[in-house]
Design a protein around this nucleic acid. Structure first.
Lengths: 108, 108
DNA sequence: AAATTAACTTACGTAAAGTAACTAGATAAG
DNA sequence: CTTATCTAGTTACTTTACGTAAGTTAATTT
């Protein structure tokens, strides 16, 4: 029950970005190589919630994972060329959000 | 357990686009005013799956809903100014997908 | 032997997305 | 008058995604 009139490549890209934390992880890595725990505390999510999209992004060759045999072991994540090429998308979202999204008073 | 170091406006924008069909609906409406059933068959989704994001987009003032009292009643959806301002984001995703996403052979 | 640290997993619960069938209100056909 | 048709949804239900908190692994220091 699905005969897409919409370009399947575009659909795939959209479905990537529609994973909850994916865009935020890429955004975070745009400012350079970071460790698991750094990304985690920057975004403010739990281990699993970060490791799921990271695995997916690694598999899609958007993020590179490097093991550094320190003590204890350190893992560094960075964007690949494919990953860095998403930057315009992220920057446009950023620009749009600044112009059109209003901050909500979530004071409780 | 969440102290975001990331701009909340940006987070909101990302969370909008991370709703499954939202980007596709906006993309579709970029080519002009369309009826419910037109969007539906273009994207290839069921009534509910379309009406959920449409309601959300209407509420966020990104999409405008107009009732036309024909027989039977026709509903036309179009982008507001805020909605059209998302175009650069969508176009960048489109561009990126053409360059980096590979078509999958889903032949069964 | 116990504790520490980083990077994950596991087990479990909640929320979002998906499906197919049904409804509403209007008209037209039999 | 009753049944059918059409558009734009809704309902009830199932499946997949997301989230939390606690636990695991491997190396090292106390």
């Amino acid at each position: 029950m699905k005969q897409p009139a919409i370009c399947p490549k575009f659909e795939k890209a959209v479905s990537l970005l529609s994973q909850k934390w994916t865009a935020l992880v890429i955004y975070q890595l745009l400012s350079g190589t970071q460790r698991f725990s750094e990304i985690q505390s920057a975004i403010g999510i739990s281990g699993k919630v970060l490791s799921d999209p990271l695995k997916d992004l690694e598999e899609k060759n958007i993020v590179k994972r490097e093991v550094i045999p320190e003590t204890p072991v350190i893992i560094e994540y960075s964007l690949t060329e494919k990953g860095r090429s998403i930057e315009p998308v992220i920057r446009d979202i950023e620009r749009w959000s600044k112009q059109w999204v209003q901050e909500e008073s979530t004071s409780s």
